[in-house]
Design a protein around this nucleic acid. Structure first.
Lengths: 226, 226
DNA sequence: ACTGATACTATACATTCGTTCAGTAAGGAT
DNA sequence: ATCCTTACTGAACGAATGTATAGTATCAGT
């Protein structure tokens, strides 16, 4: 209504940028990178074609802005504490919650990943953000680890991020095949050896052994238990 | 040389299709979906523009053909036995080997995933192939599991596939940050609880408990150990 | 009230996109 | 040797791509 009464809404640069970023995300959630186009985005936002160039310089600029916003919201989402849960439990619950583990959100991520791999500008933005992401997870891990544990929280966090990424991919491809509960189970399956007392696969000793001459022996020794 | 001497090479439909599929993969490895175009592919293959439509009907047809080929080669790669290793060990080693865990190969996968999520034709092809992929892994898991273990190999295989996907994503984004050894360690970290004697997180009991009213308790009980 | 800055529109532009199609030529079958 | 199938070329098509730019409208500062 408000938009219809006013012939032309003149927003602040900040607000208009946010509006365009949201429109771009809606388009990407709908049809991946193929729908990340000037025509589709300005139609979704209800503005003229020239606005994207005016506010972001180019489509690459908009892409970086979307990526930056996604990363910020993602980290904020997993950092929010939850009463009754440890920080690590809250983190996992956030990751499988509808706010983060929805197809719309994940499809934007998947689309962005495909661009990061081939777009130097986006890759630079990623490198600046990834450290913060990993540190957030590593902090929750150190908090949950048994006292005096000899582990590399950064390594665990990296592996955990990979799993979360993969869960997102599968969720995009076939949401029905990967319900929330299955994702949660997978998360704890990866984290539990680290949290267990004693020698998980992420201890300094285990890592050094795994990188030595006999590469498969880390798993082999376990397989031979049965 | 052979191509230059002959003015026009007339190949069988099968051979020409394979050649075009390879050219398409090279383009996708180089620049993602943005380089999956008629002009780029026919230039890479050294043929005229009309050939893609002639052999595949449309670009979508070529995309499905590429995906089908990728899946076939991927499953063949992880199914090859390796002397001195158990089937599961051989599978993991194949997954982190240069043949499968290279940026070129993985970038094609990442590109395809972005399309599967939004392309109904590709999604249908995926559904027809995913089962075979998961069964291959589940078989190796059952072989490696301790006798009489009460586990859901399909669930473990699904979770493991997610991890492998995520490792591929990270490898595409920043290959230096995820060396082969780290990927191998992450794989065994996820698999080891399942292979251990007793109650891993993938047993029937643990799964039922995890899906009950207290969703986070599967991990919570472990976190409270320390 | 005036002025400068800028949010915004709308058109135009050269490329590039996927597909169509008429025509050429090579190879197998009879 | 002659067909007929088909692998293959190359030009043409309209639609869609991102960006540049001239012009309009609105707000803040004076």
């Amino acid at each position: 209504m408000n938009d219809q009464t006013r012939k032309k809404a003149r927003l602040s640069a900040k607000d208009r940028r946010a509006l365009l970023e949201d429109a771009a995300r809606i388009c990407m959630a709908r049809g991946g990178i193929r729908d990340f186009t000037v025509d589709k985005i300005v139609a979704e936002a209800g503005v003229s074609r020239g606005l994207i160039t005016h506010h972001f310089g180019s489509m690459d600029g908009l892409l970086v802005a979307v990526y930056s916003r996604m990363y910020g919201e993602w980290i904020a989402g997993i950092s929010a504490p939850c009463p009754g849960l440890t920080p690590l439990e809250a983190l996992v619950e956030a990751l499988v919650s509808p706010a983060l583990f929805s197809r719309d959100v994940l499809n934007v991520w998947l689309t962005l990943w495909g661009e990061i791999a081939n777009n130097p500008v986006l890759r630079a933005e990623h490198r600046a953000r990834y450290g913060e992401y990993r540190d957030t997870i590593a902090a929750a891990l150190r908090d949950a680890a048994p006292p005096g544990a000899d582990i590399d929280a950064d390594t665990v966090a990296s592996a955990f991020i990979c799993l979360v990424d993969g869960l997102g991919v599968q969720r995009c491809i076939d949401p029905d095949l990967l319900p929330e509960a299955a994702a949660r189970t997978a998360c704890w399956a990866l984290l539990s050896p680290y949290l267990a007392q004693g020698n998980g696969p992420f201890t300094t000793q285990a890592r050094q052994a795994g990188q030595d001459s006999a590469p498969a022996r880390t798993g082999a020794s376990r397989a031979e238990q049965g």
